[in-house]
């Protein structure tokens, strides 16, 4: 086993990061890793910024990390990538969904959506940017966006040999969405250049 790894899945409440985490954790458990995962419920869910942390290795202690300690951030929304950028290690990897979601303060015209989110992230980190929403939509449903991003994460972290991810996805999602999510996984995987 290699050194412990930490992933941050960040986005906006309701984007489906929980299912992504579930697939990731399911595969890691099957591969025999010790796994810990942390999420926060309650007030933060109401359209707010949300983050789920997943940590794995031979033996994991803390279910949360502080700044400068994550191996990868998977951002379901690009401003959220910027918000959590300081949690990444200097050699950390980022998968970013090229998707913009205005916060209530932006929608109200009180402030503007920050310009240059992607460029700023690309300047400092190894970034993989994809339009996961568009890819998901083309595959048949915007709802599989989370698995598109998961496919990208597997490629970006070179995790293909950890476990048979396709069978983990097949077991995790409801049967009627199985084919869709497998296509989503492959599309997300292919969207990232190794």
């Amino acid at each position: 086993m290699t050194k412990n790894k930490s992933a941050l899945l960040v986005g906006v409440g309701g984007q489906g990061a929980i299912l992504t985490a579930k697939v990731l954790v399911g595969g890691l458990m099957r591969a025999g890793y010790d796994v810990k995962m942390s999420e926060v419920h309650g007030m933060s869910q109401r359209g707010g910024s949300v983050s789920t942390q997943v940590h794995w290795g031979e033996k994991v202690n803390s279910p949360v990390i502080g700044k400068g300690a994550a191996d990868i951030i998977v951002a379901f929304e690009k401003m959220e990538a910027v918000r959590y950028a300081d949690y990444l290690k200097p050699d950390g990897v980022v998968v970013i969904n090229d998707y913009e979601m205005a916060s209530s303060s932006i929608a109200a015209g009180l402030c503007e959506y920050p310009a240059g989110c992607l460029e700023a992230m690309e300047k400092h980190f190894c970034c993989h940017v994809l339009e996961a929403g568009r890819i998901a939509h083309e595959l048949g449903s915007a709802k599989c966006m989370n698995i598109v991003l998961f496919g990208s994460m597997v490629k970006a972290l070179h995790m293909e040999d950890v476990v048979d991810w396709e069978s983990v996805i097949a077991e995790t999602v409801p049967e009627k969405f199985r084919a869709l999510n497998l296509r989503a996984y492959r599309a997300g995987y292919d969207a990232v250049r190794a």
Binding site: G47, E80, V82, S103, S105, C111, E112, P114, G116, K123
Partner: peptide
Amino acid sequence: VGVSAVSRPPA
């Protein structure tokens, strides 16, 4: 990274 995210408060 030189860019700041604006707040995303629950609503």
